[in-house]
């Protein structure tokens, strides 16, 4: 089910300037274009270092753009005020990165419920949703009251994913969501993605796992096409 364009990227450019290395200029992206519609999942491909994660971070506002526009819904992330981006991240745009970054000591249940709590959802309801996701992702109940900082890599990744899907974001960015997961849990994550698509979310994903990519992505975009030729 495809709907309106949710994410629209035009002429996106980025360079890194390393001041402490003699102001070396490293261009990493030029002329990037991308459209993602509601209910569509687009996979980013390209060799390692080609700029997949960079593009994703720029859409999230984590990296600054040097030129072009990134429209997510009504907001142009490349130009928006910090608080507009904060509101966007809270309500519209979700991001599941490869790393779980949490305040130490917060229990897993609260970590997963947090996006809903930030939106003002009543605690009971937020925690119920969190429990549902944690169960689906096979995190045992005895771990729910512990901080995830002591969990294994796979467990942390699953907590990360649960947190990313707690709120039904209209737009979602997924960076290697199935990495370090066994077959059973990979299946859970893929069905969560399909569920989100069916709900109308526009999704951009980076999948190293080709089978996973083929299953959920409607099309792929190779970011190598946006990499500028670098001076030798």
């Amino acid at each position: 089910m495809k709907g309106e364009t949710m994410i629209e990227i035009r002429d996106l450019e980025k360079s890194f300037i390393l001041h402490n290395q003699g102001a070396a200029v490293i261009p990493v992206m030029a002329g990037a274009q991308l459209d993602v519609a509601a209910g569509e999942c687009v996979g980013l491909t390209g060799v390692s270092g080609a700029g997949k994660s960079t593009l994703m971070r720029m859409i999230y506002g984590n990296y600054l753009a040097n030129g072009g526009s990134i429209k997510v819904g009504e907001v142009d992330v490349a130009r928006a005020e910090p608080r507009e981006i904060l509101t966007l991240r809270r309500e519209v745009l979700g991001y599941v990165s490869q790393f779980l970054r949490v305040v130490p000591r917060v229990p897993t249940l609260t970590v997963v419920a947090e996006p809903l709590l930030a939106l003002g959802t009543p605690v009971a309801e937020a925690e119920a949703r969190a429990k549902e996701l944690l169960s689906q992702l096979n995190i045992p109940e005895r771990l729910w009251s512990l901080s995830p900082t002591t969990f294994s890599g796979g467990e942390q990744q699953r907590v990360n994913i649960a947190r990313g899907f707690a709120h039904r974001y209209p737009a979602l960015l997924l960076d290697e969501p199935t990495a370090s997961l066994d077959a059973k849990n990979r299946e859970v994550v893929l069905s969560l993605i399909e569920d989100a698509k069916a709900g109308g979310a526009a999704i951009i994903g980076i999948f190293h796992d080709e089978a996973a990519r083929d299953r959920v992505c409607d099309r792929v975009v190779d970011v190598t096409g946006f990499t500028p030729v670098r001076a030798a």
């Binding site: 890194f16 300037i17 390393l18 001041h19 402490n20 102001a23 971070r57 506002g61 984590n62 990296y63 600054l64 910090p82 981006i85 904060l86």
Partner: peptide, 15 residues
Amino acid sequence: LTDQVLDDPQHGYTQ
């Protein structure tokens, strides 16, 4: 934004 300044610092001192 905090995460932007820390992950993509623009100024030499921040870097």
